[in-house]
Write a protein that binds this DNA or RNA. Structure first.
Length: 463
RNA sequence: GGCGACGUACCCAAGUGGCUUAAGGGGACGCUCUGCAAAAGCGUUAUUCAUCGGUUCGAAUCCGAUCGUCGCCUCCA
Protein backbone atom coordinates (compact mmCIF):
# COMPACT_ATOMS: atom_id res chain seq x y z
CA UNK A 1 0.00 0.00 0.00
CA UNK A 2 1.05 3.51 -0.67
CA UNK A 3 1.43 6.49 1.60
CA UNK A 4 -1.95 7.69 2.82
CA UNK A 5 -3.03 10.78 4.74
CA UNK A 6 -6.20 11.96 6.36
CA UNK A 7 -7.32 14.85 4.22
CA UNK A 8 -9.39 17.42 6.10
CA UNK A 9 -10.96 18.47 2.82
CA UNK A 10 -12.49 15.05 2.16
CA UNK A 11 -12.64 13.98 5.80
CA UNK A 12 -11.13 10.66 4.91
CA UNK A 13 -7.85 8.88 4.53
CA UNK A 14 -6.66 9.03 0.93
CA UNK A 15 -3.65 7.73 -0.94
CA UNK A 16 -1.14 10.42 -1.72
CA UNK A 17 -1.28 11.23 -5.41
CA UNK A 18 1.33 13.84 -6.18
CA UNK A 19 0.78 16.17 -9.12
CA UNK A 20 4.16 15.15 -10.46
CA UNK A 21 5.11 11.52 -10.12
CA UNK A 22 7.72 11.03 -7.43
CA UNK A 23 7.65 14.64 -6.28
CA UNK A 24 5.74 16.23 -3.46
CA UNK A 25 5.20 19.94 -2.90
CA UNK A 26 4.52 20.62 0.75
CA UNK A 27 3.68 23.80 2.64
CA UNK A 28 3.28 24.18 6.37
CA UNK A 29 2.22 27.31 8.21
CA UNK A 30 5.16 28.68 10.14
CA UNK A 31 5.51 31.03 13.07
CA UNK A 32 4.53 34.61 13.63
CA UNK A 33 7.74 35.91 15.08
CA UNK A 34 6.69 37.95 18.09
CA UNK A 35 8.01 35.64 20.81
CA UNK A 36 9.92 32.41 21.34
CA UNK A 37 7.77 29.54 20.15
CA UNK A 38 6.20 27.22 22.71
CA UNK A 39 6.10 23.45 23.00
CA UNK A 40 2.75 23.34 21.24
CA UNK A 41 4.18 25.13 18.23
CA UNK A 42 7.17 22.84 18.51
CA UNK A 43 4.92 19.81 18.13
CA UNK A 44 3.59 21.16 14.85
CA UNK A 45 7.05 21.96 13.56
CA UNK A 46 8.34 18.53 14.51
CA UNK A 47 5.38 16.79 12.90
CA UNK A 48 5.79 18.82 9.71
CA UNK A 49 9.45 17.84 9.72
CA UNK A 50 8.46 14.19 10.06
CA UNK A 51 5.95 14.45 7.22
CA UNK A 52 8.74 15.73 5.05
CA UNK A 53 11.25 13.14 6.23
CA UNK A 54 8.80 10.29 5.86
CA UNK A 55 8.02 11.26 2.28
CA UNK A 56 11.74 11.32 1.60
CA UNK A 57 12.19 8.00 3.39
CA UNK A 58 9.56 6.61 1.02
CA UNK A 59 11.50 7.87 -1.95
CA UNK A 60 9.76 11.11 -2.81
CA UNK A 61 11.57 14.23 -3.84
CA UNK A 62 10.05 16.81 -1.51
CA UNK A 63 9.93 20.56 -1.92
CA UNK A 64 9.09 21.96 1.49
CA UNK A 65 8.20 25.57 2.25
CA UNK A 66 7.39 27.14 5.60
CA UNK A 67 6.64 30.81 5.94
CA UNK A 68 7.84 33.24 8.56
CA UNK A 69 5.22 35.85 9.32
CA UNK A 70 7.26 38.90 10.18
CA UNK A 71 4.61 41.59 10.03
CA UNK A 72 1.46 41.28 12.08
CA UNK A 73 -0.61 42.91 14.84
CA UNK A 74 1.13 40.95 17.57
CA UNK A 75 4.55 41.99 16.40
CA UNK A 76 3.46 45.61 16.31
CA UNK A 77 2.00 45.29 19.79
CA UNK A 78 5.19 43.78 21.15
CA UNK A 79 7.24 46.50 19.48
CA UNK A 80 5.14 49.17 21.16
CA UNK A 81 5.54 47.47 24.53
CA UNK A 82 9.28 47.31 24.16
CA UNK A 83 9.66 50.67 22.48
CA UNK A 84 11.57 49.26 19.52
CA UNK A 85 10.78 49.09 15.81
CA UNK A 86 8.58 46.20 14.71
CA UNK A 87 11.28 45.05 12.34
CA UNK A 88 13.65 44.60 15.28
CA UNK A 89 11.16 42.38 17.12
CA UNK A 90 10.58 40.33 13.98
CA UNK A 91 14.29 40.01 13.29
CA UNK A 92 15.08 38.88 16.80
CA UNK A 93 12.43 36.17 16.95
CA UNK A 94 12.91 35.02 13.38
CA UNK A 95 16.56 34.36 14.22
CA UNK A 96 15.47 32.61 17.43
CA UNK A 97 13.03 30.49 15.46
CA UNK A 98 15.73 29.25 13.13
CA UNK A 99 18.05 28.55 16.07
CA UNK A 100 15.39 26.70 18.00
CA UNK A 101 14.23 24.47 15.19
CA UNK A 102 17.82 23.51 14.58
CA UNK A 103 18.24 22.71 18.27
CA UNK A 104 15.13 20.53 18.03
CA UNK A 105 16.65 18.57 15.19
CA UNK A 106 14.17 19.98 12.69
CA UNK A 107 15.69 20.20 9.26
CA UNK A 108 15.45 23.64 7.75
CA UNK A 109 12.73 23.78 5.07
CA UNK A 110 13.85 24.26 1.47
CA UNK A 111 12.15 27.65 1.51
CA UNK A 112 11.47 29.93 4.48
CA UNK A 113 9.89 32.96 2.81
CA UNK A 114 9.11 36.05 4.82
CA UNK A 115 5.98 38.13 4.43
CA UNK A 116 7.94 41.37 4.20
CA UNK A 117 9.94 39.98 1.27
CA UNK A 118 6.73 39.13 -0.54
CA UNK A 119 4.84 42.42 -0.35
CA UNK A 120 4.86 43.10 -4.08
CA UNK A 121 3.45 39.65 -4.89
CA UNK A 122 0.81 40.12 -2.20
CA UNK A 123 -0.23 43.47 -3.70
CA UNK A 124 -0.44 41.89 -7.15
CA UNK A 125 -2.61 39.09 -5.81
CA UNK A 126 -4.97 41.51 -4.08
CA UNK A 127 -5.20 43.67 -7.20
CA UNK A 128 -6.10 40.59 -9.17
CA UNK A 129 -8.89 39.78 -6.73
CA UNK A 130 -10.25 43.32 -6.94
CA UNK A 131 -10.14 43.21 -10.75
CA UNK A 132 -12.01 39.93 -10.66
CA UNK A 133 -14.70 41.48 -8.49
CA UNK A 134 -13.88 39.25 -5.52
CA UNK A 135 -12.52 41.95 -3.27
CA UNK A 136 -13.34 45.57 -2.60
CA UNK A 137 -11.62 48.56 -1.09
CA UNK A 138 -13.03 50.75 1.65
CA UNK A 139 -10.96 53.73 2.74
CA UNK A 140 -7.58 52.12 2.36
CA UNK A 141 -8.63 48.68 3.61
CA UNK A 142 -9.31 45.83 1.21
CA UNK A 143 -11.73 43.05 2.05
CA UNK A 144 -12.43 39.72 0.44
CA UNK A 145 -16.06 39.16 -0.46
CA UNK A 146 -16.81 35.65 0.79
CA UNK A 147 -20.05 35.45 -1.14
CA UNK A 148 -18.02 35.64 -4.36
CA UNK A 149 -16.54 32.22 -3.68
CA UNK A 150 -19.10 29.41 -3.91
CA UNK A 151 -16.82 26.90 -2.23
CA UNK A 152 -16.45 28.98 0.92
CA UNK A 153 -16.71 26.67 3.91
CA UNK A 154 -15.71 23.48 2.13
CA UNK A 155 -12.69 22.87 4.33
CA UNK A 156 -14.16 23.66 7.73
CA UNK A 157 -17.71 22.49 7.02
CA UNK A 158 -19.10 25.83 8.01
CA UNK A 159 -21.97 27.53 6.29
CA UNK A 160 -21.96 31.22 5.61
CA UNK A 161 -25.41 31.58 7.15
CA UNK A 162 -24.23 29.95 10.37
CA UNK A 163 -21.32 32.30 10.58
CA UNK A 164 -23.62 35.24 10.26
CA UNK A 165 -26.04 33.76 12.75
CA UNK A 166 -23.25 32.96 15.18
CA UNK A 167 -22.73 36.70 15.54
CA UNK A 168 -19.29 36.14 16.95
CA UNK A 169 -17.84 37.81 13.93
CA UNK A 170 -16.78 41.32 14.74
CA UNK A 171 -19.20 43.81 13.36
CA UNK A 172 -17.65 46.15 10.88
CA UNK A 173 -20.13 48.26 9.04
CA UNK A 174 -17.72 48.69 6.16
CA UNK A 175 -17.85 44.99 5.32
CA UNK A 176 -20.38 43.85 2.74
CA UNK A 177 -20.84 40.57 4.58
CA UNK A 178 -20.00 39.70 8.20
CA UNK A 179 -17.66 36.94 7.07
CA UNK A 180 -15.57 39.15 4.81
CA UNK A 181 -11.98 39.43 5.92
CA UNK A 182 -9.14 41.89 5.44
CA UNK A 183 -6.65 41.37 2.64
CA UNK A 184 -4.94 44.71 3.20
CA UNK A 185 -4.98 46.86 6.30
CA UNK A 186 -4.40 50.58 6.10
CA UNK A 187 -1.62 51.86 8.34
CA UNK A 188 -2.29 53.77 11.51
CA UNK A 189 0.26 56.41 12.42
CA UNK A 190 3.62 54.96 13.52
CA UNK A 191 2.83 51.53 12.18
CA UNK A 192 5.16 49.90 9.69
CA UNK A 193 3.70 50.18 6.21
CA UNK A 194 4.26 49.67 2.52
CA UNK A 195 2.98 51.66 -0.43
CA UNK A 196 0.09 50.15 -2.31
CA UNK A 197 -2.60 51.18 -4.79
CA UNK A 198 -4.84 51.70 -1.73
CA UNK A 199 -2.38 53.81 0.21
CA UNK A 200 0.07 52.87 2.93
CA UNK A 201 -0.66 49.68 4.73
CA UNK A 202 0.24 46.06 5.34
CA UNK A 203 -1.06 42.62 4.40
CA UNK A 204 -3.98 41.11 6.27
CA UNK A 205 -3.64 37.89 8.22
CA UNK A 206 -4.32 35.22 5.61
CA UNK A 207 -3.11 36.53 2.31
CA UNK A 208 0.59 35.99 2.85
CA UNK A 209 0.30 32.20 3.14
CA UNK A 210 -1.63 32.02 -0.11
CA UNK A 211 0.94 34.10 -1.91
CA UNK A 212 4.08 32.60 -0.43
CA UNK A 213 2.99 29.02 -0.91
CA UNK A 214 2.06 29.63 -4.54
CA UNK A 215 5.24 31.57 -5.15
CA UNK A 216 7.40 28.59 -4.28
CA UNK A 217 5.16 25.61 -5.00
CA UNK A 218 2.89 26.76 -7.82
CA UNK A 219 -0.80 27.58 -8.08
CA UNK A 220 -1.73 24.05 -7.11
CA UNK A 221 0.43 21.95 -4.83
CA UNK A 222 0.19 18.63 -3.02
CA UNK A 223 0.04 19.13 0.73
CA UNK A 224 -0.78 22.04 2.99
CA UNK A 225 -0.43 21.57 6.72
CA UNK A 226 -0.91 23.41 9.96
CA UNK A 227 -2.41 23.25 13.43
CA UNK A 228 -6.00 22.22 13.99
CA UNK A 229 -7.05 25.71 14.93
CA UNK A 230 -6.02 27.05 11.55
CA UNK A 231 -8.75 25.17 9.69
CA UNK A 232 -11.05 28.08 10.30
CA UNK A 233 -10.71 30.81 9.42
CA UNK A 234 -7.10 30.80 8.26
CA UNK A 235 -7.06 27.89 5.83
CA UNK A 236 -10.62 28.42 4.70
CA UNK A 237 -9.67 31.96 3.75
CA UNK A 238 -6.47 30.86 2.08
CA UNK A 239 -8.50 28.61 -0.19
CA UNK A 240 -10.95 31.38 -1.01
CA UNK A 241 -8.22 33.88 -1.84
CA UNK A 242 -6.20 31.46 -3.90
CA UNK A 243 -8.88 29.62 -5.81
CA UNK A 244 -10.83 32.84 -6.16
CA UNK A 245 -8.02 34.20 -8.26
CA UNK A 246 -6.62 31.16 -10.07
CA UNK A 247 -9.79 29.17 -10.52
CA UNK A 248 -7.67 26.09 -9.81
CA UNK A 249 -7.50 23.87 -6.76
CA UNK A 250 -5.12 25.35 -4.19
CA UNK A 251 -3.80 22.42 -2.15
CA UNK A 252 -4.95 18.86 -2.83
CA UNK A 253 -4.42 17.49 0.63
CA UNK A 254 -4.90 19.32 3.93
CA UNK A 255 -3.18 17.99 7.02
CA UNK A 256 -4.07 19.27 10.48
CA UNK A 257 -2.10 18.64 13.62
CA UNK A 258 -3.63 17.98 17.01
CA UNK A 259 -3.10 20.27 19.92
CA UNK A 260 -0.78 19.95 22.81
CA UNK A 261 -2.50 20.45 26.14
CA UNK A 262 -1.30 20.85 29.66
CA UNK A 263 -3.47 19.27 32.34
CA UNK A 264 -5.89 18.54 29.51
CA UNK A 265 -6.33 22.20 28.83
CA UNK A 266 -5.15 24.27 25.98
CA UNK A 267 -1.88 25.94 26.77
CA UNK A 268 -2.16 29.67 27.13
CA UNK A 269 -0.29 32.51 28.70
CA UNK A 270 -3.27 33.60 30.76
CA UNK A 271 -3.58 30.18 32.41
CA UNK A 272 0.09 30.30 33.27
CA UNK A 273 0.75 26.90 31.75
CA UNK A 274 2.95 28.15 28.99
CA UNK A 275 6.38 26.73 28.19
CA UNK A 276 8.73 27.70 25.43
CA UNK A 277 10.59 25.02 23.56
CA UNK A 278 13.79 26.78 24.63
CA UNK A 279 13.06 26.18 28.29
CA UNK A 280 12.14 22.56 27.86
CA UNK A 281 15.20 21.52 25.94
CA UNK A 282 17.37 22.90 28.68
CA UNK A 283 15.96 20.14 30.86
CA UNK A 284 15.33 17.39 28.33
CA UNK A 285 17.20 16.27 25.27
CA UNK A 286 15.64 17.45 22.03
CA UNK A 287 15.41 13.81 20.96
CA UNK A 288 13.35 13.07 24.06
CA UNK A 289 10.90 15.81 23.17
CA UNK A 290 10.67 14.58 19.58
CA UNK A 291 10.14 11.02 20.74
CA UNK A 292 7.49 12.18 23.19
CA UNK A 293 5.62 13.88 20.34
CA UNK A 294 5.93 10.92 17.99
CA UNK A 295 4.55 8.44 20.49
CA UNK A 296 1.12 9.99 19.96
CA UNK A 297 -0.59 10.10 16.60
CA UNK A 298 -0.20 13.53 15.05
CA UNK A 299 -3.94 14.22 14.87
CA UNK A 300 -4.67 13.33 18.50
CA UNK A 301 -4.45 15.77 21.33
CA UNK A 302 -1.33 15.27 23.38
CA UNK A 303 -1.15 15.98 27.06
CA UNK A 304 2.18 17.41 28.07
CA UNK A 305 3.65 16.21 31.34
CA UNK A 306 6.96 15.67 33.00
CA UNK A 307 6.09 12.02 33.61
CA UNK A 308 5.47 11.63 29.90
CA UNK A 309 8.85 13.06 29.06
CA UNK A 310 10.56 10.90 31.67
CA UNK A 311 8.88 7.81 30.24
CA UNK A 312 9.96 8.85 26.75
CA UNK A 313 13.54 9.23 27.92
CA UNK A 314 13.51 5.72 29.39
CA UNK A 315 12.14 4.26 26.20
CA UNK A 316 14.78 6.02 24.17
CA UNK A 317 17.45 4.56 26.41
CA UNK A 318 16.24 1.11 25.39
CA UNK A 319 16.95 1.94 21.76
CA UNK A 320 20.36 3.43 22.58
CA UNK A 321 21.43 0.41 24.57
CA UNK A 322 20.40 -2.03 21.87
CA UNK A 323 22.11 0.06 19.21
CA UNK A 324 25.39 0.07 21.12
CA UNK A 325 25.09 -3.64 21.83
CA UNK A 326 24.67 -4.33 18.11
CA UNK A 327 27.78 -2.32 17.37
CA UNK A 328 29.87 -4.09 19.96
CA UNK A 329 28.62 -7.67 19.91
CA UNK A 330 30.94 -10.33 18.45
CA UNK A 331 29.76 -12.08 15.30
CA UNK A 332 27.53 -15.07 15.91
CA UNK A 333 25.30 -17.34 13.88
CA UNK A 334 21.74 -16.29 14.69
CA UNK A 335 19.74 -14.77 11.85
CA UNK A 336 16.78 -12.41 12.12
CA UNK A 337 14.85 -11.24 9.09
CA UNK A 338 15.08 -7.48 9.32
CA UNK A 339 13.21 -6.95 6.06
CA UNK A 340 10.06 -8.35 7.67
CA UNK A 341 10.21 -5.63 10.30
CA UNK A 342 10.91 -3.04 7.65
CA UNK A 343 7.83 -4.07 5.69
CA UNK A 344 5.64 -4.01 8.74
CA UNK A 345 7.02 -0.65 9.75
CA UNK A 346 6.33 0.82 6.31
CA UNK A 347 2.83 -0.63 6.21
CA UNK A 348 1.97 0.84 9.57
CA UNK A 349 3.47 4.29 9.05
CA UNK A 350 2.13 4.55 5.50
CA UNK A 351 -1.31 4.68 7.08
CA UNK A 352 -1.70 8.35 7.93
CA UNK A 353 1.74 8.69 9.45
CA UNK A 354 1.09 6.27 12.29
CA UNK A 355 4.32 6.95 14.14
CA UNK A 356 3.21 5.36 17.44
CA UNK A 357 2.46 2.14 15.59
CA UNK A 358 5.80 2.33 13.79
CA UNK A 359 7.62 2.82 17.05
CA UNK A 360 5.83 -0.24 18.40
CA UNK A 361 7.20 -2.27 15.49
CA UNK A 362 10.69 -1.01 16.29
CA UNK A 363 10.39 -1.97 19.94
CA UNK A 364 9.27 -5.45 18.97
CA UNK A 365 12.37 -5.73 16.85
CA UNK A 366 14.47 -4.55 19.78
CA UNK A 367 13.19 -7.41 21.85
CA UNK A 368 13.90 -9.89 19.10
CA UNK A 369 17.41 -8.57 18.65
CA UNK A 370 18.08 -8.61 22.39
CA UNK A 371 16.96 -12.20 22.52
CA UNK A 372 19.31 -13.01 19.68
CA UNK A 373 22.21 -11.20 21.24
CA UNK A 374 21.81 -12.93 24.58
CA UNK A 375 21.36 -16.40 23.08
CA UNK A 376 24.39 -18.64 22.75
CA UNK A 377 24.22 -18.40 18.96
CA UNK A 378 24.47 -14.62 19.03
CA UNK A 379 23.71 -12.70 15.84
CA UNK A 380 25.36 -13.02 12.47
CA UNK A 381 27.30 -10.10 11.13
CA UNK A 382 24.79 -9.74 8.29
CA UNK A 383 21.90 -9.56 10.72
CA UNK A 384 23.65 -6.98 12.84
CA UNK A 385 24.51 -4.96 9.78
CA UNK A 386 20.98 -5.07 8.40
CA UNK A 387 19.56 -4.18 11.81
CA UNK A 388 21.86 -1.20 12.20
CA UNK A 389 21.01 -0.01 8.71
CA UNK A 390 17.31 -0.22 9.48
CA UNK A 391 17.71 1.59 12.77
CA UNK A 392 19.79 4.25 11.08
CA UNK A 393 17.09 4.77 8.49
CA UNK A 394 14.26 4.96 11.03
CA UNK A 395 15.48 6.14 14.41
CA UNK A 396 18.16 8.47 13.12
CA UNK A 397 17.33 9.65 9.60
CA UNK A 398 13.53 9.51 9.80
CA UNK A 399 12.60 10.26 13.40
CA UNK A 400 15.80 11.96 14.50
CA UNK A 401 15.46 10.53 18.00
CA UNK A 402 18.66 8.60 18.38
CA UNK A 403 21.99 10.24 18.78
CA UNK A 404 24.89 7.97 19.46
CA UNK A 405 27.49 9.99 21.26
CA UNK A 406 30.85 8.45 21.58
CA UNK A 407 31.97 9.75 24.95
CA UNK A 408 35.48 8.44 24.53
CA UNK A 409 36.03 10.03 21.16
CA UNK A 410 34.71 13.43 22.18
CA UNK A 411 37.57 14.11 24.58
CA UNK A 412 40.55 11.81 24.30
CA UNK A 413 42.46 13.31 27.17
CA UNK A 414 39.54 12.88 29.51
CA UNK A 415 38.95 9.38 28.24
CA UNK A 416 42.49 8.25 28.96
CA UNK A 417 42.22 9.76 32.40
CA UNK A 418 39.06 7.76 32.99
CA UNK A 419 40.82 4.68 31.76
CA UNK A 420 43.48 5.23 34.41
CA UNK A 421 40.86 5.67 37.13
CA UNK A 422 39.09 2.50 36.06
CA UNK A 423 42.38 0.58 36.03
CA UNK A 424 43.15 1.66 39.58
CA UNK A 425 39.65 0.68 40.64
CA UNK A 426 39.79 -2.72 39.01
CA UNK A 427 43.07 -3.38 40.86
CA UNK A 428 41.31 -2.55 44.10
CA UNK A 429 38.50 -4.90 43.12
CA UNK A 430 40.95 -7.69 42.38
CA UNK A 431 42.33 -7.25 45.88
CA UNK A 432 38.74 -7.32 47.11
CA UNK A 433 39.23 -3.85 48.45
CA UNK A 434 35.50 -3.13 48.11
CA UNK A 435 35.68 -0.01 50.25
CA UNK A 436 38.08 1.63 47.84
CA UNK A 437 36.19 0.41 44.75
CA UNK A 438 32.89 1.72 46.07
CA UNK A 439 34.42 5.01 47.14
CA UNK A 440 35.67 5.65 43.61
CA UNK A 441 32.30 4.71 42.18
CA UNK A 442 30.43 6.98 44.59
CA UNK A 443 32.74 9.93 44.10
CA UNK A 444 32.48 9.64 40.33
CA UNK A 445 28.72 9.43 40.64
CA UNK A 446 28.82 12.78 42.39
CA UNK A 447 30.54 14.09 39.27
CA UNK A 448 27.74 12.61 37.16
CA UNK A 449 29.94 9.84 35.84
CA UNK A 450 28.34 6.45 36.13
CA UNK A 451 30.44 3.32 36.53
CA UNK A 452 29.00 0.00 35.53
CA UNK A 453 30.73 -3.30 36.20
CA UNK A 454 30.19 -5.86 33.51
CA UNK A 455 31.58 -9.27 32.73
CA UNK A 456 34.35 -7.96 30.51
CA UNK A 457 35.39 -5.08 32.74
CA UNK A 458 33.92 -1.77 33.82
CA UNK A 459 32.55 0.99 31.67
CA UNK A 460 31.81 4.63 32.32
CA UNK A 461 29.45 7.15 30.89
CA UNK A 462 28.47 10.68 31.61
CA UNK A 463 25.04 11.13 33.09
C1' G B 1 -26.77 27.59 19.65
C1' G B 2 -23.85 25.42 15.08
C1' C B 3 -19.74 22.10 13.61
C1' G B 4 -16.16 18.41 14.93
C1' A B 5 -13.03 15.04 17.81
C1' C B 6 -12.37 11.71 21.65
C1' G B 7 -13.33 7.96 26.02
C1' U B 8 -8.62 1.01 25.30
C1' A B 9 -4.70 -1.76 31.77
C1' C B 10 -1.83 1.96 37.42
C1' C B 11 -0.01 5.98 33.50
C1' C B 12 0.96 6.92 28.15
C1' A B 13 -0.72 4.69 23.61
C1' A B 14 -1.58 1.57 18.66
C1' G B 15 -5.42 -1.28 16.68
C1' U B 16 -11.42 0.72 13.65
C1' G B 17 -15.64 -5.90 11.32
C1' G B 18 -12.64 -12.41 11.62
C1' C B 19 -4.78 -12.69 11.17
C1' U B 20 -6.07 -9.48 18.13
C1' U B 21 -9.94 -14.29 23.83
C1' A B 22 -6.22 -6.14 22.30
C1' A B 23 0.72 -4.07 19.77
C1' G B 24 4.31 -1.16 22.12
C1' G B 25 6.50 2.18 26.01
C1' G B 26 6.59 3.69 31.27
C1' G B 27 5.54 1.74 36.20
C1' A B 28 5.13 -2.45 39.53
C1' C B 29 6.50 -7.44 40.71
C1' G B 30 9.63 -11.93 39.83
C1' C B 31 14.09 -14.03 37.71
C1' U B 32 19.24 -13.88 35.37
C1' C B 33 23.84 -11.43 35.84
C1' U B 34 26.76 -9.16 40.05
C1' G B 35 31.58 -8.77 45.81
C1' C B 36 27.63 -5.29 46.59
C1' A B 37 25.24 -2.11 43.47
C1' A B 38 23.91 -0.04 39.01
C1' A B 39 22.87 -0.95 34.20
C1' A B 40 21.09 -4.43 30.99
C1' G B 41 18.32 -8.77 29.58
C1' C B 42 14.20 -12.09 30.25
C1' G B 43 9.26 -13.05 32.22
C1' U B 44 4.47 -11.60 34.50
C1' U B 45 0.93 -7.63 34.61
C1' A B 46 -6.84 -5.98 30.09
C1' U B 47 -11.60 -12.95 28.68
C1' U B 48 -11.56 -6.87 27.88
C1' C B 49 -11.98 -1.83 24.91
C1' A B 50 -17.02 4.76 29.07
C1' U B 51 -22.29 2.73 29.81
C1' C B 52 -26.68 0.55 27.80
C1' G B 53 -29.20 -1.37 23.68
C1' G B 54 -29.06 -2.93 18.36
C1' U B 55 -27.00 -4.92 13.46
C1' U B 56 -23.97 -9.37 12.27
C1' C B 57 -22.28 -16.27 11.87
C1' G B 58 -18.69 -12.79 14.21
C1' A B 59 -17.75 -5.91 17.07
C1' A B 60 -12.99 -2.48 20.87
C1' U B 61 -14.07 -1.81 15.61
C1' C B 62 -20.74 -0.55 12.38
C1' C B 63 -25.69 1.91 14.16
C1' G B 64 -28.60 4.37 18.15
C1' A B 65 -29.10 6.36 23.00
C1' U B 66 -26.83 7.92 27.57
C1' C B 67 -22.78 9.78 30.49
C1' G B 68 -18.02 12.21 30.40
C1' U B 69 -13.79 15.04 28.26
C1' C B 70 -11.97 18.36 24.68
C1' G B 71 -11.50 21.57 20.33
C1' C B 72 -13.31 25.11 16.54
C1' C B 73 -17.04 28.91 15.45
C1' U B 74 -12.59 35.41 17.83
C1' C B 75 -5.77 36.09 17.44
C1' C B 76 -3.92 31.17 18.16
C1' A B 77 0.20 25.40 16.05
Amino acid sequence: MAVRFYNTLSRSVEPLQPLVEGKVSFYACGPTVYDYFHIGNARSFVVADIVRRYLEYRGYDVSFAMNITDIDDKIIKKAHEEGVPASEVAEKYAAAFLQDIEALGIRKPDHTPRATDTIQEIINHISGLIDAGKAYEVAGDVFYDVTSFPGYGKLSGKKLEDLVAGARVEADSRKHNPGDFALWKSAKPEEPSWDSPWGKGRPGWHIECSVMSQKFLGETFDIHAGGNDLIFPHHENEIAQSEGLTGKPFANCWLHFGFLNIDNEKMSKSLGNFFTAREIIKKYKPETLRFFYLQTHYRSPLNFSQEGLDAAEKGLERFRTLYRALQNAPDGKGVIDISASRERFNDVVDDDLNTPGGIGVLFELVKELNNGLSSTAGLSSDTKKAALEFLNATLIDLFGILKIEDDAASDEEFASLMELVLDVRSMARQEKNWGMADLIRDKLAELNIVIEDGKSGSTWKKQ
